[in-house]
C-alpha cells in the first residue's frame, strides 16, 4: 500500500470507527442488503477493499449512492463490523472534496413530486452532499 492509499484508508477507518480487520468474510452483510442489486460493489466488498487498500474504485462507484442506510448489515453482522458505517465513510471521503457533491440544489426541482416529504430531500442532502 502506498503512502497516499494508506492515509486514505486510515481516514476512512477514523471517520467510520469501523475496524475492517474484524471481518471474517461470511458475506452476511451482502446477503442482507436490500440494495444489493443496484450496487456494483457490495457491502462485503467494501469491507474487504478498504482493508486491502483498494479504495479508488469505491470512491468512483455509483454503489456509494445506493446504500439506503437501513442498518440491516450493521444489525446482522456476526462480528460487529458495521459495514454501513464504512460505506458512509467512503462516501464522505468522496463528497467532502471541493465541488464533488453528488446532489446539487439545482437538481432538486426536477426530482420533486408534490407528495414527496421534506424528509426525503433533507436526508438525501445529508447523504449525498456536503
Amino acid at each position: 500500500m502506498n503512502k497516499e492509499t494508506e492515509n486514505l484508508r486510515k481516514e476512512i477507518v477514523r471517520i467510520s470507527g469501523v475496524n475492517p480487520v474484524k471481518c471474517m468474510r461470511c458475506g452476511k452483510c451482502s446477503a442482507t442488503c436490500p440494495a444489493y442489486d443496484e450496487m456494483e460493489y457490495h457491502p462485503h466488498q467494501f469491507v474487504y477493499m478498504v482493508e486491502s487498500g483498494d479504495i479508488e474504485p469505491l470512491l468512483n462507484s455509483k454503489s456509494l449512492y445506493q446504500c439506503l442506510t437501513c442498518f440491516a448489515c450493521v444489525d446482522r453482522c456476526p462480528r460487529g463490523v458495521e459495514p454501513a458505517k464504512l460505506v458512509e465513510a467512503v462516501r464522505l471521503a468522496a463528497v467532502r472534496k471541493q465541488g464533488a457533491n453528488h446532489l446539487k440544489a439545482d437538481d432538486i426541482p426536477a426530482l420533486l413530486d408534490e407528495d414527496l416529504p421534506q424528509q426525503a430531500i433533507v436526508s438525501a442532502f445529508r447523504k449525498y452532499s456536503k
Binding site: 461470511c26 458475506g27 452476511k28 452483510c29 451482502s30 446477503a31 440491516a72
Partner: peptide, 8 residues
C-alpha cells in the same frame, strides 16, 4: 455448497 451466508 455455497460460500456465503443467509441474510433473511
Amino acid at each position: 455448497y455455497i460460500k456465503g451466508m443467509v441474510g433473511k
